Amino acid sequence: MKGVLLVNLGSPASPTPKDVKPYLDEFLMDKYVIDVPFLLRALLVRGIILRKRPKESAHAYQQIWWDEGSPLIVLSERMHKKVAKKTEMPVALAMRYGKPSIEQGLQELADKGVTDVLLFPLYPQYAMASTLTILVQAEEIRKKKFPQMKFTDVPAFYNKPDYIKALANSIKSSIANFDYDHLLFSYHGIPERHIRKTDVTKSHCKINDTCCSTPSAAHKFCYRHQCYETTRLVVEELGIPEDKYSLTFQSRLSGDKWLEPYTDIEVNKMPNKGIKKLAVVTPAFVSDCLETLEEIAMRARDDFKEHGGEEFLAVPCLNDNDEWVDVVAGWISEWEKAEIPVA
Results as ranks from 00 to 15, higher is better:
161 P>Y: 02
119 L>I: 03
333 S>C: 03
216 S>D: 12
165 K>N: 11
179 D>E: 14
158 Y>G: 07
340 I>K: 15
334 E>H: 09
254 S>V: 04
167 L>H: 10
274 G>L: 10
198 T>A: 13
325 V>I: 13
250 Q>N: 07
210 T>Y: 10
9 L>G: 00
29 M>V: 01
217 A>V: 14
213 S>Q: 15
331 W>G: 06
296 I>K: 04
315 V>W: 03
340 I>C: 04
237 E>L: 13
75 L>D: 00
200 V>H: 02
37 P>C: 05
145 K>C: 13
123 Y>A: 02
310 E>N: 12
90 P>L: 03
178 F>W: 10
153 D>Y: 11
265 I>H: 14
83 V>H: 04
293 L>I: 12
108 E>C: 06
325 V>C: 04
68 E>H: 01
237 E>H: 15
67 D>L: 13
12 P>C: 02
109 L>W: 02
332 I>Q: 05
36 V>S: 05
285 F>D: 01
71 P>D: 00
185 F>A: 06
271 P>F: 02
58 A>V: 07
51 R>H: 05
99 K>P: 00
221 F>S: 15
328 V>A: 00
266 E>I: 15
335 W>F: 06
45 V>M: 08
26 E>P: 02
108 E>W: 02
335 W>Y: 08
183 L>D: 05
185 F>Q: 11
4 V>P: 08
273 K>N: 09
116 D>P: 07
293 L>S: 08
284 A>D: 00
89 M>E: 10
68 E>L: 04
36 V>C: 07
12 P>V: 04
254 S>I: 06
137 Q>P: 02
217 A>D: 15
190 I>D: 00
226 Q>C: 11
169 N>K: 15
108 E>R: 10
104 Q>F: 07
163 Y>H: 12
62 Q>V: 00
64 I>Q: 04
